[in-house]
């Protein structure tokens, strides 16, 4: 069984079509990069997988269950198995690194335990280990608004990891970072994929980064899949087709 199977996924925003019947499968432990222009539907695609956006038609099967049939509690349980990382980190700035990381455990807790922030010793231990693994142990009790962009994104990764997810969705994780911080983040994502066996699907603007890090590349153009395969098979011509450019070079560092 495929870990993730997407069948004829379609999404309309009012009249505008964002996804036009995408189909693909992702195996356990794959590192998949999704590339395409802004507005091609990359973010919509990612968010349809954990139902942050409601698909209009098609199927999304995660471990065999169609996520579109899930309601309330079941939907929350599905989301605990899927971590998510964002371009703008989406942390609570006024709280500490540890508090933000522990937010990843909320989905496992009762409403009340979550409201008062009642985390178990094991959960805190686990969070501290992940924080140390990402090299943030100096900052465990720092407020997140005192961190640099790269550090904030590592907190974002830690918050996803503390969920013990099977799949991590990354929406432009390095688009707001300088090249050296971006490298640190991408290296961490690859380590997570290789060593922990977590599937990673990452939306990227930078083609060269996608080529360097991923096992597989999906090129999205106007809501359709125009390329799905190994990075080394992706030709210059195809890249230009994905980005809708005629000739010349793209700025990719």
């Amino acid at each position: 069984m495929h870990q993730l199977k997407v069948v004829q996924l379609t999404k309309y925003y009012k009249q505008a079509q964002a996804l036009a019947g995408l189909s693909f499968e992702v195996e356990n432990g794959e590192f998949v990069a999704v590339i395409g222009r802004s507005g091609a539907g990359k973010s919509t695609l990612l968010r349809c997988i954990n139902r942050m956006i409601e698909p209009t038609a098609g199927q999304v099967l995660f471990n065999g269950t169609d996520v579109r049939n899930l309601r309330n509690r079941d939907l929350r349980r599905l989301r605990t198995g899927i971590g998510m990382i964002f371009q703008h980190y989406n942390l609570v700035h006024r709280q500490t690194v540890l508090e933000n990381v522990l937010h990843g455990r909320l989905g496992f807790k009762s409403d009340w335990d979550g409201i008062v922030g009642n985390y178990t010793h094991a959960e805190k231990q686990h969070a501290l280990e992940i924080i140390a693994k990402l090299g943030l142990d100096q900052h465990t009790y720092s407020r997140c608004d005192t961190l640099s962009g790269g550090q904030k994104q590592r907190v974002g990764i830690a918050r996803a990891l503390v969920q013990d997810p099977q799949l991590i969705l990354c929406d432009e994780p390095i688009a707001s970072l300088d090249p050296s911080s971006a490298k640190v983040i991408m290296d961490h994502l690859r380590t997570i994929c290789r060593e922990m066996g977590i599937t990673v699907i990452v939306n990227l603007h930078q083609v060269d980064v996608a080529l360097k890090y991923s096992d597989r590349i999906m090129g999205v153009k106007a809501g359709t899949l125009v390329y799905d395969g190994k990075p080394d098979k992706l030709s210059k011509k195809l890249i230009h087709e994905i980005y809708g450019t005629e000739t010349g070079d793209l700025i990719d560092e």
Binding site: N50, M52, N90, G104, L106, D111
Partner: peptide
């Protein structure tokens, strides 16, 4: 969005974020 995506409930989001 981030807390919702990790499976947190509405009341948890209100009080934690």
């Amino acid at each position: 969005e981030a807390l919702k995506a990790s499976g947190a409930s509405w009341w948890q989001i209100v009080f934690q974020a």
